[in-house]
Simulated assay, not measured.
Amino acid sequence: MDRRELADFLRSRRERITPADVGLPTGPRRRTPGLRREEAAQLAFISTEYYTRLEQARGPHPSREVLAGLARALRLTDAERDHLHHLAGVPPGPPPGPSREVRQSILDLLHRLPQAAAIVVSAMHEVIAWNDLAAALMEDFSAVPRRDRNLVRRVFLGPHPEGRRLYGVSDADEFARRAAQDLRATAARYPDDPELTQLVAELLAGSEEFTGLWDSHDVATAPTFRKTFQHPSVGPVTVNCDVLDLSDRDQRVVIYTATPGSPSEGALRLLSVIGTQRMDTTP
Score class of each variant (00 low, 15 high):
2 D>E: 15
5 E>I: 00
5 E>G: 14
6 L>A: 02
6 L>S: 01
7 A>E: 00
13 R>W: 09
15 E>C: 11
16 R>H: 11
16 R>M: 12
18 T>H: 14
19 P>W: 05
22 V>G: 03
23 G>L: 07
24 L>D: 07
25 P>W: 12
26 T>K: 13
27 G>Y: 09
27 G>E: 02
31 R>T: 13
31 R>C: 12
34 G>N: 10
35 L>A: 08
36 R>L: 05
40 A>I: 05
41 A>R: 05
47 S>H: 02
48 T>P: 06
51 Y>L: 10
54 L>E: 00
56 Q>E: 13
57 A>W: 01
62 P>Y: 06
62 P>V: 13
68 A>G: 05
70 L>V: 14
73 A>C: 12
74 L>N: 06
77 T>H: 02
77 T>Y: 02
78 D>Q: 12
81 R>T: 15
82 D>N: 11
83 H>L: 03
86 H>W: 10
87 L>M: 06
87 L>S: 01
87 L>H: 03
88 A>D: 07
89 G>Q: 08
90 V>C: 08
91 P>Q: 11
92 P>A: 07
93 G>M: 04
93 G>L: 03
94 P>R: 15
97 G>Q: 05
104 Q>G: 06
104 Q>D: 15
110 L>P: 10
111 H>M: 05
116 A>Y: 04
118 A>I: 08
123 A>W: 09
124 M>Y: 01
126 E>C: 03
126 E>I: 01
129 A>R: 02
130 W>E: 06
130 W>S: 06
134 A>W: 03
136 A>E: 08
137 L>S: 09
138 M>F: 12
141 F>W: 09
141 F>Y: 13
142 S>M: 03
142 S>R: 08
145 P>C: 10
147 R>Y: 11
148 D>A: 13
151 L>R: 04
151 L>D: 01
153 R>P: 00
162 E>K: 12
163 G>L: 09
164 R>E: 14
165 R>N: 15
168 G>M: 11
171 D>A: 12
172 A>V: 04
172 A>C: 12
176 A>H: 08
176 A>L: 02
178 R>A: 15
178 R>W: 08
181 Q>Y: 13
182 D>F: 08
183 L>V: 08
185 A>M: 09
188 A>R: 15
189 R>D: 13
191 P>N: 07
193 D>Q: 00
194 P>Y: 04
195 E>I: 01
198 Q>F: 04
199 L>T: 02
201 A>N: 04
202 E>C: 07
203 L>G: 02
205 A>H: 03
206 G>M: 01
210 F>E: 06
211 T>P: 02
211 T>I: 01
213 L>A: 01
213 L>M: 12
215 D>G: 11
216 S>F: 03
216 S>K: 00
219 V>H: 10
222 A>Q: 12
223 P>R: 04
224 T>E: 04
225 F>T: 15
225 F>V: 14
227 K>H: 04
229 F>L: 02
230 Q>T: 11
235 G>L: 06
237 V>D: 07
240 N>T: 14
240 N>E: 14
242 D>M: 12
242 D>G: 06
242 D>S: 14
244 L>Y: 13
244 L>V: 15
244 L>R: 05
246 L>I: 14
247 S>G: 09
252 R>V: 03
254 V>K: 00
255 I>N: 10
258 A>L: 03
259 T>M: 01
260 P>Q: 03
260 P>G: 03
263 P>S: 10
264 S>T: 02
266 G>W: 06
267 A>Y: 07
268 L>R: 10
269 R>Q: 13
